[in-house]
């Protein structure tokens, strides 16, 4: 099995529901295992949301590129944007042992992606952030 899916998401919240729905449809058609499918949806929502909120200073339209590949028993997903340099792997891990009242909100989405993926990578290249997530399909 070697198949892929790509989509471009505009940097506004109105574009997110259609992008989420398109990705879900494809994941379903490919019968992707639930854990990988969940991770892919979560990565799209969390990374695109972060990028829309914090990625840009200008009001110009930007495109966030999503690419998924199913190959060699692995799902590889990349999310690429031309926003400010932002390495999610350098984010402090939220302390999920703190009492709920004292826990800062934020950073939770990235924490979830790191825990749910088998590997997460970041590069800054040609003025773009690229986050790559790996998930083994049939562990």
């Amino acid at each position: 099995m070697n198949t892929g899916y790509s989509c471009d998401v505009a940097n506004n919240f109105d574009a997110l529901p259609a992008a989420m729905a398109g990705l879900s449809r494809w994941l379903e058609e490919q019968s992707v295992a639930p854990a990988a499918s969940y991770l892919a949806s979560l990565a799209l929502e969390e990374l695109v949301t972060n990028c829309i909120k914090y990625g840009y200073d200008d009001t110009a339209a930007h495109v966030i590129q999503i690419h998924l590949q199913l190959a060699g028993g692995e799902m590889i997903m990349t999310v690429e944007d031309d926003g400010h340099p932002f390495n999610p792997l350098e984010q402090a891990e939220p302390d999920t042992n703190l009492p709920i009242e004292e826990r800062p909100i934020g950073g939770l989405g990235i924490h979830m992606l790191r825990k749910m993926s088998d590997r997460m990578e970041y590069v800054r290249e040609n003025g773009k952030n690229r986050v790559t997530l790996h998930k083994i399909l049939n562990p």
Partner: peptide, 16 residues
């Protein structure tokens, strides 16, 4: 569901 429970556990809020 199992998938959602896992996410709640990862977030440290399942117990409460």
């Amino acid at each position: 569901t199992a998938g959602v429970l896992e996410v709640l556990q990862l977030s440290g809020i399942a117990a409460m």
